[in-house]
Design a protein around this nucleic acid. Sequence first.
DNA 1: AAGGTTTACAACCGCAGGCTG
DNA 2: ACAGCCTGCGGTTGTAAACCT
Length: 341
Amino acid sequence: MGRAPCCDKANVKKGPWSPEEDAKLKDYIEKYGTGGNWIALPQKIGIKRCGKSCRLRWLNYLRPNIKHGGFSEEEDNIICNLYISIGSRWSIIAAQLPGRTDNDIKNYWNTRLKKKLLGRRKPGHASNLSGSTQDPKSGNGMETLSNSAIERLQLHMQLQSLENPNISNGSNASMWPCKLNPIQEKMMQSLQLLNQSSNTLMMQHAFLDSPQKVQLYGSSSNHIQQVHSIANNTTENRVDNSINEVNVGSSTIEQNMEFQQCLAFQAEIDEFFSNKGANAVSIDDQARANELECFKDIDGAKDMMNWWSNEFDVNSASSNSWYSNGVLDQQQREGSYVSIP
DNA sequence: AAGGTTTACAACCGCAGGCTG
DNA sequence: ACAGCCTGCGGTTGTAAACCT
């Protein structure tokens, strides 16, 4: 027996909202509030919409003080920092950006920011990394987690590689815009192994369990760490359960090489993050120039280079009253905002 | 100019978890 | 303790607009 539908699908309108519907919903909520029951709201207002749809429309578009588009570089940085730190926890990220909705940030990330940060790789680059050789019909839900983890690792390593010019001395790894150093190459091998063994939850755990990584990006401001901590606490059970599912559901994993190497990888990545935090290298112009040289053959490299080379100027940061709380304001007040290189 | 492709964004869907009786 | 309801979240889809050939 399936779950009861939240509304009568047959009598519910779908698709874009009309101005009339918007006006009715807005007027009603402004006068009477939601009454704590979204499901009953459409009937009260007299519109043929699902309660969930009303809620979404109100939260994302109709409620006061919503900003659309025009993301600033400060916001880009915050989104990127938090995404690397806590993953696709859009509601938590949105909470740090007043006036932004989780849906807006999610869309912005998926359509623009991700490409801006990771660059437009040639077809096959990302798919090589995520083990696309597997049968597409065999999707088991793990790919999503894997891709998220991979994206975050890619972001981290791109940031790291730009921060540390020595990385260019590594071996050849076609999926990366920059050559990898031995530790990074080893991490990638482990990552590929993780994908092959479908044990990607371990990967996710490795990231969630590494608060040091926040420090990589210079969060001398504690705020992002606090967000990270909140995110970890709120999902602690989910993550732990996920790990348990992996362990219980794959009882033989512990006995095979893949799992041992996964553990080794986790330890390695923790160490990597720790060392990185301790050995942060400042970027001078020459180092940056050397580093950017390695992007020259990559599609979209120009865009990336432009973006990366844009230093964030604290003094030019918006003093918009929107930022009365959240990361942005906190960092500005502390004068400790750290831009992604 | 027309058709095809890509991009951006609004909206939907299903699941998980909290709340309440 | 448990079942049902509701909310919130994150992933995915649909589609209009923009861009390209």
